[in-house]
Design a protein around this nucleic acid. Sequence first.
DNA 1: TTACAAAACTAACGATTGTTAGTTACAATA
DNA 2: TATTGTAACTAACAATCGTTAGTTTTGTAA
Lengths: 188, 188
Amino acid sequence: MKLTRKEEIVIVAAKLFKEKGYSAVSMRDIAQQMDIKAASLYNHIKGKQEILSSLVLHVAEKFTNSTQSITSQDGTALQRLKKLIEVHIDITVHHADAIAALNNDWMHLDGQDLLDFIAMRDQYEENFRSIIKQGIQTQQIKAKEPEVILFSILSTLRTLYLWNEKRGKLEVNVLKKELVSVLISGIV
Amino acid sequence: MKLTRKEEIVIVAAKLFKEKGYSAVSMRDIAQQMDIKAASLYNHIKGKQEILSSLVLHVAEKFTNSTQSITSQDGTALQRLKKLIEVHIDITVHHADAIAALNNDWMHLDGQDLLDFIAMRDQYEENFRSIIKQGIQTQQIKAKEPEVILFSILSTLRTLYLWNEKRGKLEVNVLKKELVSVLISGIV
DNA sequence: TTACAAAACTAACGATTGTTAGTTACAATA
DNA sequence: TATTGTAACTAACAATCGTTAGTTTTGTAA
């Protein structure tokens, strides 16, 4: 599948954003990386903000949709949690750079884009939380502080994009199996 | 204990860096937050870079020293790991803003400061890794991929600064106990 | 070959950046 | 009271920022 010029720009920008953050990357940096001048970028995009919002909102939708779908299907809390972890890993592996922006640069979105992002983020978190609470209720999950469990798993998944480069030869399915085991059963 | 003017600046800057990142915060932003003009900052600091390096290197040393100390004391791998988690929580609770900069803005350090930081970070990680490997060898820890375990625990601890605000009424000692339990024993 | 659209270019804009120079206000000390 | 050091100020600098206007090159279809 052939990429539009705009998509190319977004991909290149994402890589730069990941290295130095949105604010530290100039339009001239992005242009240089594409071997064109900064002004030429504006033939394809409205501005710097559009690059960020394309990047962040697109992958945020993926997360929201997949959790929504898991929550609506049936299954025990643990089955759902496992599925959630696996889906998160899949998205991370395929959109590592975009996730960096989602994690670190979402606050530089403006206007409606920012509101939309926060809404999706909250919904995602709420879905996650409800699965954990369901697990505690059915006693599949130890009755610990649900917020501690939520935070612990979520922060591991959110930071996976950083670690995925060093993943090296570890195959995706092995990673899934190991991470599910560590996050759910612990290490002892 | 009375703070020097420089320390006040660093503290105020840290709070702003946490919100928007180092690059998106201007000297004028920092000055405004202190009710002075930007030029006045330079009576106390050499420049923006010095604010960042004071912030990051200071807390990085804390981490390095504490892991070093734990590694040199005796104890089983699990005892050490538990201690490591607890110390990490203590430092996070007391230096949340600085840790934000350490996590997100370290790449904007320059020259020797950057090299020093990377050295400390690598050493910290290596100490952590050796404890986990020791645990696997003595069979206190399940023989999973050590890198997966390392990553999982470390990313939870590193993101704790974000979550600590929402910690709310959860007392520090409760947090320690819960988090140690979740990270080591899992949730089932 | 001509016509048209896509995508590059040059040049420049106003705003903001980190920082410097030189000066002034104020409090403590001699 | 005179002196001195601290910490503020105003004004401005060169560089860089995102962006716009207008023009030229390039590739494709008629």
